[in-house]
Amino acid sequence: MDNKLLLIILSLLLPPIAVFLKKGVGVDLLINIVLCLLVFFPGVVHALWVTMKDG
């Protein structure tokens, strides 16, 4: 439970790091970095989505 709370907080503050901790280096991380560079809010939404889904 604490791990999920930490990922949610990181998703709000530093989305690419949250995605990296959840999925590692891959397509999801690349998508999140691009979204954060374009506009920050979509990167936050994507990070929350990645960290909250199971798997």
Score class of each variant (00 low, 15 high):
1 M>I: 06
1 M>P: 02
1 M>R: 12
2 D>T: 04
2 D>Q: 02
3 N>R: 15
3 N>G: 01
4 K>P: 00
4 K>I: 11
6 L>M: 05
6 L>A: 12
7 L>E: 07
8 I>P: 00
8 I>K: 03
9 I>P: 00
9 I>T: 06
11 S>Q: 09
11 S>M: 04
11 S>T: 04
12 L>N: 01
12 L>C: 11
13 L>H: 02
14 L>T: 06
14 L>M: 12
14 L>P: 00
15 P>A: 09
15 P>C: 07
15 P>M: 10
15 P>F: 07
16 P>A: 10
16 P>L: 04
16 P>D: 10
16 P>Y: 06
16 P>M: 08
17 I>V: 15
17 I>L: 15
20 F>R: 14
20 F>M: 14
20 F>K: 14
21 L>S: 03
21 L>V: 08
21 L>F: 14
21 L>M: 15
23 K>Q: 14
24 G>E: 14
24 G>P: 11
25 V>E: 13
26 G>K: 07
26 G>W: 04
27 V>H: 05
27 V>G: 00
27 V>E: 10
28 D>L: 11
29 L>K: 08
30 L>D: 01
31 I>Q: 01
32 N>E: 02
32 N>F: 04
34 V>E: 00
35 L>T: 00
35 L>R: 01
37 L>R: 00
37 L>N: 08
37 L>D: 01
38 L>F: 14
38 L>N: 04
38 L>M: 11
39 V>T: 13
40 F>A: 15
40 F>K: 13
40 F>R: 13
41 F>L: 15
41 F>I: 15
41 F>C: 04
41 F>R: 00
42 P>D: 06
42 P>K: 03
43 G>S: 06
44 V>P: 02
44 V>K: 05
45 V>H: 02
45 V>E: 06
46 H>M: 09
46 H>I: 03
46 H>T: 02
47 A>I: 01
48 L>H: 10
49 W>Q: 04
50 V>K: 11
50 V>N: 06
51 T>G: 07
51 T>M: 09
51 T>K: 06
51 T>S: 15
52 M>I: 13
52 M>Y: 13
53 K>N: 12
53 K>S: 14
54 D>N: 14
54 D>K: 15
55 G>M: 14
55 G>W: 03
